[in-house]
Amino acid sequence: MFAEFDLVMPSGLDEALDILAEAGGDGGLDVLPLAGGTNLVVDLRARRVSADKLVGLGRIAALRGIERSNGRVAIGAGTTLSDILRDPGMAEAAPSLVESARVFAGQMVRNTATVAGNVCCGSPAADTVPPLLSLDAELTLTGRDGSRVVPLADFFLGYQKDQRRPDELVTKIAWDAPKPNSANLFYKLARRKGDAITVVGIAVTVAAEAGKCTTARIALGAVAPVVKRAREAEAMLEGEALTPELIEVAARQAVEESSPIDDVRASADYRRHSVHALTRRLLTQAWDPATVGG
């Protein structure tokens, strides 16, 4: 029935990194980090994934907690979706991430699933990734030899391929809280609000100064092998006033930058249509004088 594996629950980060480092190499053991287990336990049970050993991260105090200082926000790898919803400062520090957490799975999964696990599972439909991309988030990857910081925008290399080495952990995810005169929005299109896999998920950030857009981010979920930014559409908006005509052109460009597939949840055509409609709507809502200043 259930695949077999060993389980260790280190209480220190160094200990966890040692276990991961020793596992690597030729003929080494297959060792995987275990966070909330909401992907991994399901995959192990279905035997889509196998492992000799799991390193549980749940007891490592250094991975917990949310920090905010000088407009910078950093969440530890142990931060769950429910932690995001409970944190009183998060509504300002990451509005799109809070929205994605609200419509993420059901309560029991939110109580255990981590944001870092969502990023590491590499799914194009992972709901926290468009928000984090729209916030220019950076990941800290830590191995026994030290840490490196990788922009999330460079992290994914292809379908379920990313820059993390097997002996590294994502230890931290950080971003700058949105500036005044900016909007940061997320919309998840799915069969229902709760507990449904995303058909299309889009996050946008728009910042403005003196009636012109200074920064634009458009992140597209579930419409390409990886969650990705529509960089050319973003470039069309920066330096301009977002007129309905320009928003329409950028929304069409976002469709060009998507490459959706047909699957059980929706056709590629419906996904393209949704990228267009949702990008247009989110940009229109973001360009509200009450938010970005008029």
Binding site: L7, M9, L34, G36, G37, T38, V41, V42, L54, G56, G58, Q107, M108, V109, N111, T112
Partner: peptide
């Protein structure tokens, strides 16, 4: 609340 089917006892 957690789903006990997704939670390994050893954790």
């Amino acid at each position: 609340a957690v789903d006990s089917c997704l939670t390994l006892t050893g954790t």
